[in-house]
Computed example of a mutant assay.
Amino acid sequence: MRISELSSRSGVSIATIKYYIREGLLPAGRPVAANQADYDEDHLRRLRLVRALVAERGLPVSTAADVLAVLAETGTQNGTDGTDGTDEDGAAGGEGRGVHRVLGRVFGAMDTARDRERAASEAGLTEVRRLVTAMGWRIHPRSAAVPALARALDALDQLGVRIDCRTLLPYARLAERTAEVDLDLLAAAPAGSDLAEHAVLLTVLLDPALLVLRRLAQEHHSAARQPDPT
């Protein structure tokens, strides 16, 4: 297909498609003439994924590029390249380890340079570490999620809302149940599917839907607590 058809089918303007190509988010088309290129269904799928990351999820272009780089690097490590299911160290049972590594790579790519520049307070980090200990979670010492949560607590604290480990525990238990569903869905991915892409879809692009579900639940319970059902 020509770039005009790619634009029409994806809903992304031609100018934006060319920008994504320049930034390395979308592979260039196959040249067919001096100023023309041909695109296929793989380009369309990739473009829709890029649009979801940038326009729907709101990721900076540089962060989206990092996430897509993870997809490119890990796409052949899920058994579709003829590997025998061992991990990169040659140990058996590599499938589970593969999911863990893919998630780690995806989460690392989501840790933007802009976020890393905002140092978390020691008080915030202490509360997050207390939470991790209380939940018995196995978290990597360099996990980007720990300072990210601490920065969120810092922002609340600056506005006069103090959230500590005890307050977070009920939320952490709910998050743990959600994570179990995520991992079950990843484990149930069809054979031969792209594990890294599934990880992105279920852990990155599903986030906005989970936020909306929370809003719906809040609306319901708020209405249920009113004396007048209407």
Rank of each mutant, 00 (worst) to 15 (best):
A189Q: 08
A224I: 10
T178R: 15
A55G: 00
S193R: 01
E56W: 14
A123M: 10
T203Y: 08
L210Q: 13
R45M: 04
L26C: 03
A123R: 15
I21V: 14
R105D: 12
S8K: 15
R116D: 01
I14R: 10
A172P: 06
A119K: 06
Q226D: 15
A134K: 07
Q226T: 11
D81V: 09
N78Q: 07
A69C: 08
E122Y: 00
D84Y: 03
V132T: 05
R130C: 10
R57P: 08
R142E: 14
R2W: 04
R22F: 04
H100E: 02
L131K: 01
L103C: 10
A15Q: 10
R166P: 06
D84R: 05
L183H: 08
V212F: 15
L49Y: 03
G24C: 06
D84H: 03
Y20E: 03
T80E: 10
A152L: 14
R116M: 05
R151Y: 04
G11F: 15
R151F: 06
L195V: 12
L168R: 00
A34K: 15
A144K: 06
V212T: 12
D154I: 04
G124T: 02
A155H: 11
D81M: 13
A187N: 09
S8T: 12
D184S: 11
V106F: 03
A152G: 00
S4Q: 09
G58S: 06
D228F: 04
L216S: 01
E73C: 02
L183Q: 07
G108N: 02
S193F: 04
A172R: 00
S7Q: 05
G24V: 02
L185W: 01
T203P: 12
L195I: 10
L174T: 13
R46V: 03
V67C: 05
T126W: 05
A179E: 07
L195R: 03
V99D: 13
